[in-house]
Amino acid sequence: MDTKGKIQVSAKDVNVFYGDKQALQNITLDVKSNKVTSFIGPSGCGKTTFLKCINRMNDLIDICRVEGNILVAGQDIYDKSVDMVALRAHVGMVFQKPNPFPKSIFENVAYGMKIHNMTSSKSELADRVEDSLRRAALWDEVKDRLDQPGTGLSGGQQQRLCIARTIAVQPKVILMDEPASALDPIATAKIEELIHELKQNFTIIIVTHSMQQAARVSQQTAFFHLGNLVEFGKTTDIFTNPQDERTQNYITGRIG
């Protein structure tokens, strides 16, 4: 099924509350398949909150309440019939700080496939681990020490391991929450290169506070400010010809 260019994630009038406090107001946007979409904005603007709505990671916070509709592959994910486990297998996530499990590199990548019973034999599992590590551009660095703990890798390698772990489950959408913010510039460049490669097969949504990064990796950009989606469009348009004054102020460094 070729979904290229189709709408993969669609949000309509999404409101999010933490207890009595409203964190997001009437967010409406469509994310296209096989593109990189970046969410930018000053800290506390709600971009990460919105990202976590897309695979319902917010459900883990007791006081968080989500209103409105978010459709992934045409299905309302806040519908009662939705199974969270299946949803998160479909919409993977990479976190701000690399968080490999305290297990071997191999086990880290195999974990998701094992819990979802995705492979029928040991050799298939090993093949898929290798494939995922290759696609995460980590294979050459770790192929000789797959049985060593994932926590022993460098920060950049750990983050790529987390990406390999996520793509091993074969999601359609990958959410990335400031994936390079804890990394040095060289490791960041590698991650950005990887994102560029990955969009062939995945729809990627990335939260970043670096406007340069958004400009480098994404085709679509959404600018959030104080819980509102201020502007959403082609990355080139947002950065060269912003329509809203607040966007203009942000990208020129007057607010942030």
Binding site: N55, M57, L60, M84, V85, A86, L87, R88, A89, H90, G92, M93, V94, F95, N99, P100, F101, Y111, G112, I115, H116, C162, R165, T166, V169
Partner: peptide, 8 residues
């Protein structure tokens, strides 16, 4: 978070 994010 990592584990839930993978659908466990």
């Amino acid at each position: 978070d990592a584990s839930y994010g993978l659908g466990a």
